[in-house]
Amino acid sequence: MGPYWMNYFVHVVPICVTDSQVLKCLAKLTYEVQHMRKELLAMKNSLKCACNGSSSPAPELKSTLPLSTEEEMAIMCDEVKEGMAMDALVNTLSVAGGDTLVKVVVNIMRKLMTNDLAKVYSACGRKGKKSLVALPVYKAIESAVRKNIVGATDCDVRAKVSRYLACAMDREGGERKEDVYRQQCLGIYWRCVRSADS
């Protein structure tokens, strides 16, 4: 008999004969690794809360997520200026998870704000929108991203947040609805022109 790990491997992973069976095995292993990573992250977060050094319960946010109005965002920004509320927001956002930087940012942004509120902001406040980076909430977004993706740089996070906000109009049929409306208007216009000609 070979080493212990070989016996374990042979019993856990069946011997694959075809390419499709190999791909199925790899997909299953990938899923299991991702699931274990999520569990590990959850345990890590709960351990951090338990080892915080205080016997008081973990701080909770007064505001409910996702934020849907600019007034709710202003209240959240005032709340986050306190240290405990910032920690609570970071912990709340960081459990959104994801296995790539893009997925983590998308999940965090979806947890933080509705798509309608995302349409009001851009990363730096361009094109007549408000700047999200200038708000205290943005620091919580960066910290939450870094809890999931350790090597994420400021530029990487800002670029992904910027992209998420820029695409808010396209999500949930934003521009597509406008295109359908334009086509309907053109159809009505051409029907009126045809009826006037006849």
Rank of each mutant, 00 (worst) to 15 (best):
M1D: 07
P3H: 13
M6I: 07
N7F: 08
N7Y: 06
H11V: 06
V12D: 10
V13G: 02
I15R: 13
V17R: 11
S20Y: 03
A27M: 03
K28H: 01
T30F: 02
E32D: 03
K38Q: 10
L41G: 07
A42F: 07
S46A: 15
L47N: 10
S54Q: 14
P57K: 15
P59Y: 10
L61R: 02
K62E: 12
S63I: 14
L65N: 02
L65E: 07
P66Q: 14
P66F: 08
L67S: 09
S68N: 11
E71K: 13
A74W: 05
M76G: 01
M76Q: 12
E79Y: 07
K81Y: 04
E82M: 11
E82K: 14
M84F: 12
M84S: 15
M86A: 15
M86R: 14
A88L: 10
L89Q: 00
V90Q: 00
T92Q: 12
G97E: 07
T100V: 08
V104A: 03
V104Q: 01
V105N: 02
V106N: 09
N107G: 07
R110D: 14
L112V: 09
T114F: 04
N115T: 08
K119Y: 04
Y121V: 07
S122N: 09
R126S: 08
S131M: 04
L132I: 09
L135R: 13
L135S: 10
V137D: 01
K139R: 13
S143K: 12
S143P: 00
A144K: 02
V145M: 04
K147L: 04
I149Q: 04
V150C: 02
G151V: 06
D154G: 11
C155H: 05
A159V: 11
K160S: 05
R163D: 08
R163Y: 09
Y164M: 11
C167G: 05
A168R: 01
R171F: 07
R171H: 09
R171Q: 10
E178K: 13
D179L: 15
Y181M: 12
Y181G: 06
Q183P: 02
Q184P: 00
I188C: 03
I188H: 04
Y189A: 13
R191E: 05
R191M: 04
